[in-house]
Amino acid sequence: MGKTIAIIPARGGSKRLPNKNIKLLCGIPLLAYSIKYALTNLDKIDDVYVSSDNENIKQVALKYGAKVIDRPAELCGDSEPTITALKHALEVINDEIDTVVLLQATNPLRPKDLLKNALNVFNEKKLNSLFTVSRDHKKLGKIIDHKFKPFNYKIGQRSQDLEPLYYENGLLFITKTSLIKKDIIFNELSYPLIVNHKFTEIDIDTQEDFEYAEYILKNSNE
């Protein structure tokens, strides 16, 4: 049976929040949170890799215990999809890899047992791909011709009576390498693992996101 590895893509170019991946979050580089999280699960995964084109990011990755994949600059553009980083990493590693756990550096905080539980579900159900979702309790609608048209509720309906809707929270993705080779990380057939936790609200793209993450981290017991 092939290995299960974690890959954390972390390119250097970040226009909205410069040097985002190594910006200090409560004194620790943002990237390091995902590395440290993966390393606490070495009973479930075999290796932890960071894929990057940036020397400073690579040094942080090595310092915190990850292995480094040197990603070519042409695979690090703003519009470059994550799948190309995963495919490149698998080509460089060139080993019998069965399953990839994708961790995004911009989602630094995860429930302690999430990865363990997710891999248990993945293996027990013999899945090809899994991704994490959370329930959204907002009353959503569209604005058409300057009028608000409710989408998931009727005017006056209580929030607790809404039909459940879910969003991708980005905490983790688990995918068989056979799917990655077909340019798929997850799709409509993938298993949605429901995670309802305050950490699912954190996805860092702006300074405001960063400050919110610091607030949650400082006030969390995990």
Rank of each mutant, 00 (worst) to 15 (best):
I204D: 08
Q157Y: 01
F131A: 05
V68I: 04
N117F: 00
A89M: 02
L17H: 15
A32H: 09
V60D: 12
I144R: 08
L217D: 06
I7R: 07
E168S: 07
S51H: 05
D78F: 09
K142N: 12
K116M: 02
Y191P: 04
S159K: 15
C76A: 13
F148C: 07
L127W: 02
Y166H: 07
I204C: 08
I144Q: 06
H197E: 07
I144A: 00
L179S: 15
T200M: 06
V195Q: 11
L171P: 01
T40V: 03
L140C: 09
K3I: 01
N56Y: 09
I69S: 08
L90E: 15
I202P: 04
I45A: 00
K44T: 00
I7D: 04
A118S: 10
N187G: 05
K112A: 04
S51V: 07
L86T: 10
G13S: 14
D53T: 14
N187A: 06
K15G: 02
E211D: 15
Y212L: 12
A10Q: 04
I8Q: 13
P81D: 04
I184H: 06
I155K: 14
V68S: 05
P81H: 07
K142P: 00
Y166L: 07
D203Q: 10
G12Y: 10
K58A: 12
R110M: 05
E211M: 11
G27C: 09
F131M: 08
E211K: 13
L25K: 06
H197M: 04
D113G: 00
R158I: 10
Q59N: 13
L114S: 08
F122I: 11
S51K: 05
A85M: 12
Y212G: 03
A73V: 15
F151N: 14
K67H: 13
H146Q: 15
T99I: 15
S159R: 06
A85D: 14
E222P: 01
S51A: 15
S14I: 10
A32G: 06
D78M: 10
L130M: 03
P9H: 13
Q157F: 07
R11M: 05
H137S: 07
E74M: 07
F151S: 15
I184C: 09
S14Y: 15
S51E: 03
L179P: 06
E124M: 06
T82H: 05
L217V: 05
I180C: 11
V195H: 01
